[in-house]
């Protein structure tokens, strides 16, 4: 796709807006449809769009293999870590209401935000990783 100027410019122009929408979806999962999965997938899709328009190497310059590998596991760890924090705060595993964050409702609200963000990170970077690995160009010389 490197020679198609329209595709490149449109992709470059739309990527930040798609990412903004992804964060909106993650943050507003409690008020309307949305949440970690949908937002994560949209975030992944924005980067996949960028990679399709500019090529693998350019995409890997933006998100290196090391960073995406680490972030894949970070999301799951955030989720499990919030559960452990709840135990440390004196509740059961994943009982957000016990977190020491002011009122009962606020604590459970913030706990849910936390796990939505964890799910979003994992989903986004797993999708990016799967795309990078599946669509990798075959080197015919080896």
């Amino acid at each position: 796709m490197k020679e198609h100027i329209i595709v490149r410019i449109v992709a470059k122009f739309f990527t930040p807006f798609i990412q903004l929408f992804a964060f909106y979806v993650i943050a507003h999962g409690d008020l309307g449809p949305g949440g970690g999965f949908q937002g994560g997938v949209i975030l992944g899709a924005s980067i996949i769009l960028y990679v399709i328009a500019f090529g693998m190497d350019e995409g890997r310059k933006r998100i290196s293999q090391k960073v995406s590998d680490i972030l894949v596991s970070t999301g799951a760890l955030v989720y499990a870590g919030i559960g452990i924090l709840c135990i440390l705060a004196g509740g059961a595993y994943l009982e957000y209401a016990e977190l020491p964050l002011g009122s009962h409702h606020l604590a459970s609200h913030l706990g849910m935000y936390g796990i939505e963000i964890g799910v979003g990170i994992t989903v986004a970077f797993v999708m990016i990783t799967i795309f990078f690995e599946t669509a990798k160009k075959e080197r015919t010389d080896s």
Partner: peptide, 15 residues
């Protein structure tokens, strides 16, 4: 009453 959020699907999913 339990969670204080409006989207039931998110509440059941996350809480």
């Amino acid at each position: 009453h339990d969670t204080g959020i409006n989207n039931m699907v998110t509440a059941v999913l996350a809480s």
